[in-house]
Nucleic acid binder design. Structure first.
Length: 472
DNA sequence: TGGGGTTAT
DNA sequence: ATAACCC
């Protein structure tokens, strides 16, 4: 079923325009609530148009594309003993995200499970989606593997400039309007968001026709609201939020933890202050909040509680780091750790090779067994330049020195003479650079003399970080 | 709770 | 290097 098999019966446009001409909220005209909503609406409509695109049960979709026989069956994607996501067939039968395999099988004995511990195909498909969206606008920000924000402001402006004046009044929304709010085509903010919804529909259509992927979209004046509204109609549908309904959307959340940007820790701290719902946070003393969270976080999250979010869509570009991790019940010997580290490294080298850029820093992460929470420790160090140069073509020569480095990092964290119990190992390549090293600068002679024999091409500015880097 | 990612401190 | 956030 295509993207268009949804959203039957959008409200008739003429009716909409007519209703929108009525005075704002006739029923509660002059009420404090109406004045307040209008005030917030005005501050929020900074004139941006942002879309949040959210793929439906992404890993399960990728698996169903790989193996179409899975399409009509309840499907779960398994990592270790967890079902990390599942298709809608499985959801109908009671399977939830992050449910244990035991519970899932109990709920749904017919559940088909595929192993999703290797993220390669998901990652590749994820970047195909981002690249497709980048064709609409270069301002695409990734959030995880299955979500993207796109700033449509410029595209919308261009489309409106191409549009004859009299045709503005025949602009229609694609998909749902949050709250079923009437669109006022005499309101330029409404018109811009409506055009944004049309672009969002084109994006989803492109994802479906080119990649066979379905997903939701939310169109709103900022990232927070776009993200919140994208989930309102669920699977494979889209929703636009008009500023006047912003307060309804944000108050539809039952707890502040549901505000993106307020995580587990912050929510717990706020709960101690007696802040539980959005209204609590909106009306809480900013001074007290600043004392608790610091001025920056306090102001940011209180703004979030009003639906205000001035953060820009920051283009993600290529990844800043590559990592591979593995969890297990128990790793308690150095030899065992070495074997696992070699496996992680081997996969990583293939990825780094494919990317083309060179990592200049390597990091090892561990998690020690403890009944307590998942706390991790890490050690990192620069990758010696002669090892960096071996990366990319036949990475085989780089394996031994890198394993040596990783094992030094390992012994720096873990006293191998004492008993230990690890439950996670992770290797990360970061500090990625396009070429072997910098050029062009007064320091160049000193900086490159011991490095790169192949240095060419300017552009990459030198980062002072490189030299003072942490050593093990 | 998996196997990733990012930014701020 | 860690801690917080996101999926």
């Amino acid at each position: 079923m295509g993207v268009e098999a949804e959203e039957e019966g959008g409200p008739a446009e003429e009716e909409d325009a007519a209703r929108a001409m009525e005075p704002l909220d006739a029923g509660a005209a002059g009420s404090l609530r109406a004045v307040f909503d209008q005030g917030v609406a005005t501050r929020i409509s900074s004139s941006r148009v942002i879309v949040h695109v959210d793929l439906d049960c992404f890993y399960a979709q990728v698996e169903m594309i790989s193996n179409p026989e899975l399409k009509d069956k309840p499907l779960g994607v398994q990592q270790k003993y967890l079902v990390v996501t599942c298709n809608y067939e499985a959801r109908k039968l009671g399977v939830k995200k992050l449910m244990s395999v035991r519970d899932a099988k109990e709920k749904c004995p017919q559940l088909v499970l595929v192993n999703g511990e290797d993220l390669s195909r998901y990652r590749e498909m994820s970047y195909k989606v981002t690249e497709l969206l980048e064709e609409f606008s270069p301002l695409v920000e990734r959030l995880g593997f299955d979500e993207n924000f796109v700033d449509l402001t410029e595209m919308v402006e261009k489309r409106l400039q191409q549009l004859p004046r009299d045709e503005i009044l025949s602009v229609t929304v694609s998909g749902h309007v949050y709250n079923n709010q009437a669109v006022n085509l005499h309101n330029v903010t409404h018109v811009r968001l409506a055009v944004g919804s049309q672009i969002a529909a084109e994006m989803r259509e492109a994802m479906y026709s080119q990649l066979e992927l379905t997903g939701c979209a939310g169109v709103a004046p900022n990232k927070l609201l776009a993200k919140l509204v994208s989930g309102v109609f669920k699977p494979n549908q889209q929703t636009v939020l008009l500023p006047e309904s912003c307060q309804d959307l944000i108050h539809s959340l039952n707890h502040i933890k549901e505000i993106p940007g307020i995580g587990y820790k912050t929510a717990k701290r706020l709960e101690v202050l007696g802040i539980n719902c959005v209204l609590d946070l909106q009306t809480f003393s900013i001074k007290t909040l600043e004392k608790e969270l610091g001025i920056s976080a306090a102001q940011r999250i209180q703004k979030l509680s009003f639906g205000e979010d001035s953060s820009p869509v920051t283009p993600s570009g290529p990844p800043q780091s590559f990592s591979e991790e593995d969890t297990f019940k128990k790793c308690s010997s150095e030899a065992e750790a070495k074997t696992k580290i070699e496996e992680l490294l081997s996969s990583l080298l293939n990825r780094v090779c494919h990317d083309g850029r060179k990592p200049h820093t390597i990091r090892l992460v561990i998690r020690r067994y403890s009944p307590k929470h998942c706390h991790r420790e890490s050690r990192q160090c620069p990758i010696p330049s002669h090892v960096i140069q071996k990366l990319g073509t036949e990475n085989y020569d780089a394996v031994t020195p890198l394993v040596d480095i990783l094992m030094k990092l390992f012994r720096n964290m873990v006293n191998v003479k004492l008993p230990f119990h690890l439950t996670l190992l992770s290797v990360c390549f970061c500090n990625l650079k396009a070429l072997s090293t910098a050029k062009k600068g007064p320091m160049d002679f000193y900086l490159t003399s011991s490095l790169s024999t192949t240095a060419h091409s300017g552009k990459r500015s030198f980062k002072a970080k490189d030299t003072h880097n942490d050593d093990v």
